[in-house]
Design a protein around this nucleic acid. Structure first.
Lengths: 192, 192
DNA sequence: TCGATTGTCTAGCGCTGCTAGGATCGAATC
DNA sequence: GATTCGATCCTAGCAGCGCTAGACAATCGA
């Protein structure tokens, strides 16, 4: 049995290597540079090996997205744990979210821009994605105000952050006013 | 002279045809389906002809984006012209914006997701893009409230709409609650 | 009518994601 | 210890991509 186990371990290890390498390459040179050939070369295996782990490039993107969702949830929770005041917590959440998006653009794209073949906002949505939304909900739900569905409020706030994150990175918004934009957003959206 | 003029006319006409065909194809089957080969076939010219009008695919996307910006500005202005009440105007703007994004997904992508080689939020930004932002500013500026920079407020509101538009279309947000989300956004963001 | 210019096409380059089929290697069996 | 057999991996190749060089034909000015 131990031989099979070793093989399984090695296989799992190689899969981690593929995902980590894809992510690294994407962060360094963008997702366009993540071709199956380059990826195969970097992990020092031939191209078809990738297809024994993933159905295709799309699934590799999806794997990076799941990894990113877990990290983002952790980042948001860590940032909001430092205080009890709802407004301060929301501000911290907003900053940590935009910070994550800015620091991990490729991962952020895998999560919310690219097609990773993942289901969102559904029953069959993978756990890490659900949990990332839950992390937002934990803090934003408190700020919804009376008579407003916490889930709906979270969606609105999240979308507002997402818009700022993507438009800033796509150079559609000037980057220097981020702080003021976040402040305005929090001031207005958080229930008094 | 009239021969040259005719040729110029025909050339301009063909350029319009290229842009219109690219847009049509993108709306029908997505931008991935807009390949230079397919596009050339549809306009009944060979592939290199495209490159005598545009530097490459990117510039074609940019041309579609500019066309879209003009239309979007017109749509927003038309929607906000019907009333004088600031809050009602903002609601109308939000709906017309999201409606445009939903009805012209490929054009919206060309504008705000894809790389069309256009400059944004800069001096050399093409006029249609500046004017589209101006159209938003005309209505949203009124709702900024005292002491808040109208431009900044417009950016925040626009980003919030953009987030909802893209996340909804990327199936990250459930589509059915759009109306409630818009209402919540307007209620909170518009200065009292 | 002739040479130059302009316009268009065919053919091809290097790249992409993906896969079929053969070689190799290691584990299990005799 | 030799042999079979299955898993594993690679080479080679497909169709399609954006883009371009060079040949060719049509049109223009002299």
């Amino acid at each position: 049995m131990s031989v099979q186990e070793r093989k399984q371990r090695e296989r799992a290890e190689r899969e981690r290597l593929i995902v980590a390498t894809a992510r690294e390459l994407a962060e360094q040179q963008g997702w366009d540079a993540v071709t199956t050939r380059r990826l195969a070369e970097r992990i020092e295996y031939s191209q078809p090996v990738l297809y024994s782990h993933f159905r295709g490039k799309r699934e590799i993107i999806g794997a990076v997205a799941l990894q990113g969702a877990t990290e983002m949830a952790a980042a948001v929770r860590a940032a909001t744990r430092t205080t009890d005041d709802p407004r301060t917590r929301v501000t911290a959440l907003a900053h940590s979210y935009l910070d994550f998006a800015a620091r991990n653009p490729a991962v952020y794209d895998a999560l919310f821009q690219l097609d990773g073949g993942l289901a969102f906002a559904q029953e069959e949505t993978p756990e890490p994605l659900k949990d990332a939304f839950a992390a937002l909900l934990e803090t934003l739900g408190e700020a919804a105000g009376d008579g407003v569905d916490p889930g709906l409020f979270t969606e609105v706030f999240w979308a507002a952050l997402h818009g700022q994150a993507t438009l800033t990175r796509a150079r559609r918004l000037p980057p220097q006013d981020t702080e003021r934009r976040v402040q305005l957003l929090v001031d207005r959206l958080v229930a008094l």
